[in-house]
Design a protein around this nucleic acid. Structure first.
Lengths: 234, 234
DNA sequence: CGAGCCTCTTGCACATTGTTCAAGTAATGG
DNA sequence: CCATTACTTGAACAATGTGCAAGAGGCTCG
């Protein structure tokens, strides 16, 4: 693969990297991380699967690019206009929504996909927010990290809960897999009395009831806690 | 596969489900979720890969069993002895350590693996803890969920950071993949000036510096926030 | 002790999917 | 019109999950 620096499109109707990444994001949103495969992507673009490899080094690389693309959806609040707490809330909520829109992102993160500039921009702004709040150096880092991880974890939980409750004829592969998993779990439970399989549990119930509200509850608690650390120190 | 209800071992030296699950956990710990494959598992157990399928319905099912096994490592603090805050801290910290010991768990969770009794037990105890703290019904659920998700997110971040900084000749596959990813990222960055790839960022920096400390900082902030919600209402 | 029957184990085979590669086809510049 | 550059394609390979039919060890009943 030669990466032509900012090539201009030829007259011929040809694939572009942008197009491929966009379609990949569509496919990821629709089918999840395991729903994305090169042949399906090719079909969706009316070309051979292997044509992708001229534009993209590998599938992993494609996921990386898709990830970076999605990070750029985020707008960052102006710290001169809104206070740090509002800014933190906005950023965390937007982040949460992004993860909700693109559940595969959580998987990608868990699988150690490296992030690009999109995340860097967000991180910078996040850091600035907590510095504006009054945290110094290392503590601002930690505060930003705490909130980010809280959002990430919440998104993971919400995604799992959603895929559990989303019986309303969603996609097929996931649905099937889930069905199998539950059937298996129940079968195991029947044969192994000591293994009482439960698919709900409080955490799942909390999410299922209203993931967004659960998210907000915890977020505000976390921000409360951070604020308290400030006033206690200050 | 017939699941014999609690079969006793035959005289013949034969595989057991337990053995398979244990070996799977070993392999998962050593090689990660994508390092686990039936053929490798078979080799490690000196049997054909397909022999697993008599004891285990599928690979997914095996991961489910491995997951449940690992959840049982957790001990639960006695709520009559330690206060709720200490109990919450202990449980969260143990959970965090469990995720750190078995990084693939985060991936499994993100990939919507269904959990078994091990998690249910933990959830029950967690709920009881926050009820002991004074939260009522739904709020206790939300508090438990908030802390759990915080831990999960933190574990995901820590795992990612660890695999980034763990250059000290760890396993090979992951190392290689990581190396490739970074090389790719840099290559992309060179050819597409607008895509300035950054592999660090504040969050990553925070983790890398000392993930455990970052975890504790955020955890205490979150618990502070929860406590504050109690006193404010009470 | 032999026949039949469980309980596993094995080897073969197939489908899916990531990826490589040599060969093809279109636009472009000379 | 030709050579070069920029892509596209189809065949093919390797890795991996999994089904299946055949085998092999041990138990039980006659």
């Amino acid at each position: 693969m030669q990466l032509p620096a900012y090539r201009e499109a030829m007259a011929r109707d040809t694939l572009t990297r942008d197009q491929i990444v966009s379609t990949a994001v569509e496919l990821l949103d629709a089918e999840g991380l395991e729903g994305l495969n090169m042949r399906a992507l090719g079909k969706r673009l009316d070309s051979a699967a292997t044509a992708m490899y001229w534009h993209v080094r590998s599938k992993d690389n494609l996921v990386l690019l898709a990830t970076d693309r999605v990070w750029r959806e985020l707008e960052l609040p102006d710290l001169d206009i809104v206070g740090w707490r509002a800014a933190a809330t906005i950023m965390a909520t937007d982040l949460y929504r992004m993860f909700t829109r693109h559940p595969w992102l959580v998987q990608a993160f868990a699988a150690h996909v490296v992030y690009g500039e999109g995340k860097a921009r967000h991180d910078d702004h996040s850091l600035a927010t907590y510095e504006a709040a009054g945290f110094t150096g290392g503590q601002a880092d930690q505060a930003a990290a705490a909130v980010f991880t809280y959002v990430l974890g919440n998104a993971a939980g919400a995604a799992a809960a959603a895929s559990l409750s989303r019986r309303t004829g969603a996609d097929h592969a996931t649905e099937q897999r889930l069905h199998d998993a539950m059937a298996e779990a129940h079968e195991i439970a029947m044969h192994y009395p000591r293994l009482r399989v439960r698919l709900d549990g409080p955490a799942a119930a909390g999410y299922a009831a209203s993931p967004d509200k659960t998210f907000e509850f915890g977020l505000q608690a976390l921000l409360d806690g951070l604020e308290r650390q400030l006033t206690r120190r200050g």
